[in-house]
């Protein structure tokens, strides 16, 4: 195997791990709580931009850059994303499920507008480079750094996975499930059912913010075009194809969907003449859309299926 391929493999898997964290966040919200988040790209972007602004050294053309350490950036990214999720959740989580979808979708659109238009903060459509990579100076080559970062991501994913499994098996997680499965239980819990939902929503979104931060400190620059709405749909495809309500499924879905996305991208660049690049890109997106619809129609339980004995029918009348 050539070095180039190994190097690409490490890069590819790193992206899968980062998106896997987003998918785990969504799985908590959708798979375990039944909350519909259509603004994943927005929360992912909040984390990414917050981290970039905190860690990148001050520059004349950008007003807020701080040049603080990586860890501060990660913590800040998570905190700001959590705050944003809390505010939006507070307003909408008590409403019917599809209204949460609309609001979160709106968040993503608004964030995108801010990243494009608030140039002094975000660098506008160009974004900005120079986001420090953690411990980059210690490695002789980009490849060595990528290996290190891959290991770091593996550790983070393992930690997130372990943490999620733990809280889902705790009394908190059981209440969450009861709230999702059983409308009566939700009503009986009243206000506290809403607060459980809100907590799950905030935690899930915070993970998305974390992933955004990990992404920009991996590639070293930030741009609005990494946070287009398509990201939201890709993550959905991951969770639904993998099997919602199952953290292993979310990670497997991340790998599967990203493999299809990346390889269809490669195939299209090879097969489609450059003059029709727009059409090629369209085909790639159509594939994601089809994957989503077909999975919902023909394999609603995903590749792995839900990890639960409780019947979804229990509350249907």
């Amino acid at each position: 195997m050539s070095m180039g391929l190994v190097s690409y493999g490490v890069f590819f898997l790193s992206v899968v791990l980062i998106l896997g964290i987003v998918a785990l966040g969504l799985n908590l919200q959708w798979g375990y709580t039944g909350l519909f988040n259509a603004g994943i790209a927005g929360f992912y972007a909040i984390g990414a931009y917050t981290h970039s602004i905190i860690t990148t050294p001050p520059r004349a053309d950008l007003i807020a850059n701080m040049g603080l350490p990586w860890v501060v950036g990660i913590a800040g990214a998570m905190a700001v994303t959590a705050l944003a999720a809390w505010i939006i959740g507070l307003a909408t989580i008590r409403l019917r499920g599809d209204y949460l979808a609309i609001s979160t979708f709106g968040i993503a659109v608004t964030i995108q507008l801010v990243t494009l238009n608030f140039e002094a903060l975000t660098g506008g459509s160009q974004g900005f480079t120079g986001i420090p990579r953690p411990l980059y100076g210690m490695f002789g080559s980009p490849f060595a750094f990528n290996l290190f970062y891959f290991a770091l991501l593996l550790a983070v994913v393992a930690l997130v996975y372990w943490g999620l499994e733990r809280i889902l098996r705790s009394p908190w997680g059981r209440v969450l499930k009861a709230v999702r499965e059983d409308e009566t239980a939700a009503i009986a819990l009243g206000k506290s059912a809403i607060s459980f939902r809100l907590q799950s929503f905030v935690i899930g979104s915070t993970l998305m913010g974390l992933a955004g931060a990990l992404y920009v400190s991996f590639i070293g620059f930030v741009s609005p075009f990494d946070f287009l709405p398509i990201v939201t749909f890709q993550i959905w495809a991951m969770v639904i194809v993998g099997g919602s309500g199952n953290n292993k499924g979310a990670l497997l879905g991340a790998l599967t969907v990203w493999l299809i996305w990346a390889s269809s991208g490669v195939a299209i660049t090879k097969l489609v003449p450059p003059a029709h690049a727009a059409q090629g890109g369209a085909i790639q997106v159509i594939l994601i859309g089809l994957m989503l619809v077909l999975a919902l129609l023909f394999r609603p339980r995903g590749l792995i299926g839900e990890e639960t004995m409780v019947s979804r029918h229990a509350d249907e009348r």
């Binding site: 599809d98 959905w236 369209a282 085909i283 997106v285 859309g289 989503l292 129609l297 029918h313």
Partner: peptide, 29 residues
């Protein structure tokens, strides 16, 4: 199909987004 199945009501909304992606990009195509 989703309406008549016992799918989660919100899976219609997921599907709508998927359908939107396909429809929009067929226009591009």
């Amino acid at each position: 199909r989703l309406r008549n199945s016992d799918a989660h009501p919100l899976s219609m909304v997921f599907a709508a987004f998927g359908v939107a992606l396909v429809m929009r990009h067929v226009v591009v195509l």
